[in-house]
Design a binder for these strands. Structure first.
Lengths: 185, 185
DNA sequence: AAAACTATACTGACCGGTCAGTACAGTCAA
DNA sequence: TTGACTGTACTGACCGGTCAGTATAGTTTT
């Protein structure tokens, strides 16, 4: 059941981060949320850093899984980007999906120690490759990805960059940009 | 000299955050860096929260100042966005400008307590307005802003989303998008 | 002399991490 | 088939360090 418990702890940590705020993401709080003892948490994750690392890894895994799932039924050019947009932005501000919940962990990791982002950094070459070969103009493709990142991080932080109507229009346009090549000249 | 010392403390805090990492952004370290005592720091900022709030405010102020400066010698459509792109992305990864240094504080604030982002959130309606009335298609304008945000946050976190050549091409394209309306249809 | 500011020494809470011990399921020799 | 032994998963009490914040006395500025 080791795998099970580890996953349970990661989910609990994500819940704590969202519900009580990152400043209350203590090992004790995680243990309580997971319904086990603090010692039990340390049995599975040797340190808080290790737990954070596990959460970042989980975020990466879930994101890639969602992209793959979306690509499975969309074989046209730009499908990777459309999957990525979905994965990042499907969560409404209130009702966070798993990606949204783990995103808070991502923030914590980045704030505490950027080396904790290693699992994310490792995947960047592969993501760049996917974007550059997605079948549309690479520069435009990167911009779509960056805009999705920007919207995502602002969501996670709660910065109100767009109202609902603008948000819908932006997402629609981003998806259009994965289909139609609007490169100047 | 109250204003002076406060500014000095904020700058010191930003330096500490960059140099020693956010986990070492303690009031004592800030005091040492600023060359005053811990008591002195608390005299000026009643709590750590207040200091963090001051740093976020400073980031907002500097960003808006840089945008205004850029706009002063660029009165064509899209000048706000071009100024914003410059303000966010002028800092190379190694040699951070003032925006880059304070950005780390922004991350910390977001991670510790999203209410600390209030000074940033307050300005969003004004920024949205500036973007929507910048003279180019509003949806495209928002996308340019979000992409700049995305590139900026990835820089701050140290996630290698783009290599140097891609980065240059993306920035060039973003600036082009502030000039030429590439809206489909 | 009052107000503004600074330095030093201290407190108290919190939190990451440790550790001795428990529960229990399985294995295996006699 | 039972008793000795082992490994895995976990418990809960505890410790030590860190750090925000305070108390208070001293110093400089106006």
């Amino acid at each position: 059941m080791a795998r099970d418990t580890k996953a349970k702890i990661i989910a609990a940590a994500a819940n704590v981060a969202v519900a009580r705020g990152v400043q209350n993401l203590t090992m004790e709080a995680v243990a309580e949320e997971a319904g086990i003892s603090k010692g039990g948490v340390f049995y599975h994750f040797g340190s808080k850093q290790e737990l954070l690392l596990g959460m970042v890894q989980a975020l990466v895994d879930i994101t890639e899984k969602e992209v793959s799932a979306a690509q499975a039924q969309d074989h046209e050019a730009g499908s990777w980007l459309r999957g990525f947009i979905r994965a990042c932005l499907t969560n409404s501000a209130e009702d966070l999906g798993p990606v949204g919940r783990l995103s808070v962990a991502f923030l914590t990791a980045a704030a505490n120690d950027t080396t904790l982002l290693a699992p994310m950094n490792e995947r960047q070459p592969a993501w760049r490759e996917a974007i550059n070969t997605s079948g549309i103009d690479p520069v435009q493709a990167q911009i779509v990805r960056l805009a999705a990142d920007g919207l995502w991080i602002n969501d996670v932080m709660g910065v109100p960059v767009l109202d609902a109507a603008e948000r819908a229009a932006v997402i629609e346009r981003l998806e259009a940009m994965t289909r139609k090549d609007t490169e100047p000249e």
